[in-house]
């Protein structure tokens, strides 16, 4: 800088700051445009599904939300069964995927020998690149027969537990809510794992080494140092997985059984919002089509509510920790 004459510097200051201010304004405008584009797309999708489903949503309103019927012959539609199937399969997926993702991420960042970390991480990320239709076909042709074989054993063991046993009653079809939930769990596992692994790597070595120095076991370091340090990002990763599970279509369509049922058993077939739409949209006319678009709108609402609950939980957690 010393080579630049001071006079020029002072002369240019006014012009430069004006130029900078202009660049800043343009930059801000571009960023704002990008953000608004996302919002506009979201709003557009929400409004157009609302408009497409208006005959059902405004014509039948409450009946559509609370009815379990789905009768295209009589034009009587209710969204309860698909909403139920969507929530249950996603819940099963999260319950199964979160502990496993946690274990995988912990192993890859803290325990695995160095030579294994990179290839194993890549393998997990490759899982995320498999198209969902492949998961569906794998589910139907490989996993469903396997489930059909082990389901009688599930009914005989877990099915005996009082209360919880209700979840495991029913014919061993291999298809159903549990199978769909497990396939979804495999699908969302790489998403949650990648996020967890990335954030676990951000924990300062100092903190961990101090804990080890104080005589903590590995488990204590993971549970008391790494996890609290990364908690909000970990929950963010889980929400990402949950969002994907709620909207997943093809894989679920293959293994869920596509039947408008609300049952207490996870072994029974069900249906989900997105698979109903994928199945029936092609041949649907009139009120039937309106009902399917309204289901699409409901998926927005359901996802929004689920994400909202997750956010509230996160805030609650932060408050409890006094942050």
């Amino acid at each position: 800088m010393s080579s630049i004459p001071a006079t020029i510097d002072t002369l240019d200051t006014g012009r430069r700051s004006r130029l900078d201010a202009r660049h800043d304004r343009i930059f801000r405008g571009v960023l704002r445009f990008c953000a608004l584009l996302v919002l506009a797309a979201l709003l557009g999708a929400a409004l157009s599904t609302l408009w497409g489903g208006r005959e059902i949503l405004f014509g039948q309103g409450l009946h559509f939300l609370t009815s379990t019927a789905w009768n295209p012959v009589e034009d009587d539609y209710g969204a309860l069964a698909p909403v139920f199937g969507t929530l249950v399969t996603s819940l099963v997926a999260i319950v199964l995927a979160v502990p496993v993702s946690f274990g995988v991420a912990m192993f890859l960042t803290e325990i695995a020998p160095n030579w294994l970390r990179a290839p194993a991480s890549t393998a997990v990320e490759l899982l995320a690149a498999i198209p969902s239709i492949i998961y569906g076909m794998w589910g139907l042709f490989v996993f469903v027969p396997f489930m059909a074989r082990i389901e009688p054993a599930l009914t005989d063991t877990l099915g005996r537990i009082p209360l919880l046993g209700k979840l495991f009653q029913g014919p061993p079809l291999g298809l159903g809510l549990l199978t769909a939930g497990i396939v979804l769990a495999v699908m969302i596992l790489p998403f949650i794992t990648s996020v967890m692994r990335e954030v676990f790597l951000t924990v300062p070595t100092r903190l961990k080494e101090s804990a080890y120095a104080l005589g903590s076991t590995r488990w204590e370091v993971l549970w008391d140092i790494v996890l609290p340090y990364t908690r909000s990002a970990v929950i963010g990763g889980i929400i990402l997985g949950l969002g994907r599970a709620l909207g997943e279509t093809m894989a679920v369509t293959f293994v869920l059984g596509n039947s408008y049922n609300i049952t207490s058993s996870l072994l029974m077939p069900g249906t989900s919002i997105s698979s109903s739409i994928a199945n029936e949209f092609n041949e649907a006319v009139g009120l039937h089509r309106s009902a399917l678009v309204a289901l699409g709108f409901l998926l927005f609402v359901v996802t929004f509510i689920v994400l909202l609950i997750a956010r509230l939980m996160l805030r609650q957690l932060a408050r409890r920790e006094g942050r």
């Binding site: 789905w70 009768n71 295209p72 139907l140 291999g174 596509n258 039947s259 077939p269 249906t271 029936e280």
Partner: peptide
């Protein structure tokens, strides 16, 4: 109708889907 409310059963997508389910179950 082309789509009806089925009293019982599971649904496969397309002829292929029904054939696959019948083979699997």
């Amino acid at each position: 109708g082309s789509a009806i409310q089925w009293p019982v059963g599971i649904g496969g997508k397309g002829n292929q889907g029904v054939a696959a389910y019948v083979k699997q179950v």
